[in-house]
């Protein structure tokens, strides 16, 4: 089984690269072959990825989130799952390339640097860890997708404003659809982030005697949550324009990156990856 896990782990970046290539061919060249097979190929890749995660979980006896690199692969899987859900829901296939490029790099780094071990801290065997991290990963994946659609919105917005009618103009869906995709992904993200925060509190109360609600990592999460909540309220209740919402979404993603890098590597927090 170890060989199979290792084989799949090596294969996955290659498969995601091919999937990104097919979606790219469809986006830039409107290639009919790519259009016919890209979705099937991506679904097949996701299925293999799910099998790899389950096999890894069974063999190494822990959730697939024991290190930063394991989390990257799980984030890649969550990104694809949420993307496929949105693609199915809104019937927009020209945006997959942007998501899959991110997925490919996440999986590439993960497969290159990950080292699997059975020896992980006992705390990570707690079922609440599984729920907390699964919700957090799904939340971050959704928010990343929301901001990717935000970026696409801004690219198309400025292309139309400046009368540039290139591939972005020709191939991306309308501004309204991109904004809707970004909003939907943000909605899913806020939902899972709320769950992750609540489970995190309950779990932290149980295991840490001195749990600090103003820990830097937690503060960054509050900020992310607030930004995306503001995006949802701004879009649905205050009827803000798509450009402002797109900027909020992209800004929220910048905060996530900051959270992943700066807080983990530069600051002291109780909340770190091993």
């Amino acid at each position: 089984m170890e060989f199979l896990v290792s084989f799949l782990n090596t294969l996955l970046p290659i498969l995601y690269f091919i999937a990104a290539y097919l979606y790219g061919m469809f986006l830039f060249r409107d290639d009919r072959f790519a259009e016919r097979y890209m979705q099937k190929f991506l679904r097949f890749t996701v299925l293999l990825h799910l099998i790899e995660v389950v096999l890894r979980g069974i063999y190494y006896k822990h959730y697939p989130l024991a290190s930063v690199f394991e989390a990257m692969a799980t984030l890649a899987l969550a990104l694809v799952l949420i993307y496929l859900y949105l693609e199915q829901r809104l019937k927009v296939k020209t945006t997959g390339y942007f998501v899959l490029i991110l997925v490919f790099f996440l999986q590439l780094f993960s497969s290159a640097f990950v080292s699997f071990t059975r020896e992980i801290p006992a705390i990570l065997h707690n079922p609440l860890f599984g729920f907390h991290t699964t919700a957090a990963i799904l939340a971050y994946a959704s928010l990343a997708i929301s901001s990717l659609y935000g970026i696409m919105y801004l690219l198309l917005f400025y292309d139309i404003k400046r009368s540039r009618f290139g591939v972005i103009y020709n191939r991306l869906p309308s501004l309204e659809v991109l904004s809707e995709l970004s909003q939907k992904a943000a909605g899913i993200g806020v939902f899972f982030l709320t769950i992750a925060i609540i489970i995190g509190f309950v779990w932290a109360e149980m295991i840490f005697n001195k749990f600090h609600v103003l820990d830097p990592k937690i503060v960054v999460v509050y900020l992310t949550w607030l930004i995306y909540l503001l995006q949802l309220v701004g879009g649905r209740i205050l009827k803000w324009g798509g450009r402002r919402l797109a900027f909020l979404s992209v800004g929220g993603f910048a905060v996530i990156i900051f959270s992943m890098l700066a807080v983990n590597f530069l600051m002291t927090s109780f909340h770190v990856f091993q």
Partner: peptide, 26 residues
């Protein structure tokens, strides 16, 4: 159906409508 020979507006009037469709969904 298999090529893009018939794709894209080729009159000013239709280009205006396509532009509207790039902004509005419906």
């Amino acid at each position: 159906s298999e090529t893009e020979l018939g794709v894209g507006a080729i009159s000013v009037a239709y280009a205006a409508v396509e532009l509207a469709q790039k902004i509005f969904k419906n």
